[in-house]
């Protein structure tokens, strides 16, 4: 497969993140090969592909979460507003403050709803109680969860339903004011109604945030994303506007995948 050209499918707002020559391997197993991809600001980019194609690995590279995996080796450059997040002297902690992440399985802390959302602020050194309260409310509203939980902010987050927990995780992520939000199959464990709510939320968040979402559901990618990148066997096969990708894919493999021949 030929090396994909850096492409900006649709960038009315400019480019937020640029990926150059990214290679990622686990031990001797190369998970991502020579990926170049530009992520447009304040838009939703969907990463699709059969399972094991490396899309989650790539996603975790965007905020250096792969650093926590011992055997994982990264080569290449990922630029955030033109600055290399893998550059010398760059603190991965600072990267993660600006590039937040929502995981496949909702993972609220076994703390109260309030404390979950306030966590990122507190560890960031925010001490002012009023500021924290204000930001918690703002974030919960931003994640469309406020009305459901405003009367029980001090109860355990583990008492929420699966969909609510996932929206809580989104709220928790919003509270630290990230610029980019990475979502790793955020609705895969949810029922259709909860999924619809998350998707609606993603469309709203696009107004303010750059969102990169990994999904195994083509329909979901079509519903929420502006542009779509198709990964296969660790390589980026094609990247383009979502509506173009789903109607007139440029590459044969993409067409095969989208029409359901494999994956």
């Amino acid at each position: 497969m030929s090396k994909s050209e850096p492409s900006v499918a649709q960038a009315p707002n400019g480019v937020k993140m640029e990926t150059r020559n990214v290679n990622i391997s686990y031990g001797s197993n190369q998970a991502i090969r020579d990926v170049d991809l530009d992520i447009a600001d304040r838009s939703v980019t969907a990463l699709i592909g059969p399972s094991g194609c490396g899309k989650s690995t790539y996603l975790r590279a965007l905020n250096r979460m792969n650093d926590t995996i011992d055997s994982c080796r990264f080569e290449g450059h990922i630029l955030l507003d033109g600055e290399d997040i893998y550059g010398r002297g760059v603190d991965p902690v600072e990267v993660r403050r600006r590039v937040g992440m929502v995981f496949q399985k909702s993972n609220p802390f076994p703390k109260s709803i309030f404390d979950n959302v306030a966590f990122g602020l507190r560890i960031g050194g925010e001490k002012d109680k009023d500021v924290i309260a204000e930001r918690v409310e703002e974030s919960l509203k931003g994640a469309a969860l406020w009305d459901e939980v405003k009367d029980r902010l001090q109860t355990s987050a583990l008492g929420l339903s699966g969909g609510q927990q996932q929206r809580l995780c989104i709220a928790r992520c919003l509270a630290v004011w990230p610029e980019v939000i990475l979502m790793d199959e955020p609705a895969s464990a949810l029922d259709p109604i909860a999924t619809a709510k998350i998707e609606e939320l993603i469309r709203e968040l696009r107004e303010q945030y750059t969102i990169v979402i990994v999904t195994h559901s083509m329909q979901q990618a079509a519903r929420v994303s502006d542009s779509t990148a198709f990964f296969y066997m660790g390589e980026l096969i094609e990247h383009g506007k979502t509506d173009m990708m789903f109607t007139r894919p440029a590459k044969k493999r993409t067409e095969e995948y989208i029409s359901g021949r494999f994956g």
Binding site: D81, E83, G87, G89, D91, E94, R97, R98
Partner: peptide, 15 residues
């Protein structure tokens, strides 16, 4: 107004 202004070199830790 609560949002802290980011330093010029953004990744070299404002925190």
């Amino acid at each position: 107004t609560l949002r802290p202004r980011r330093a010029k070199s953004k990744l070299a830790s404002s925190f």
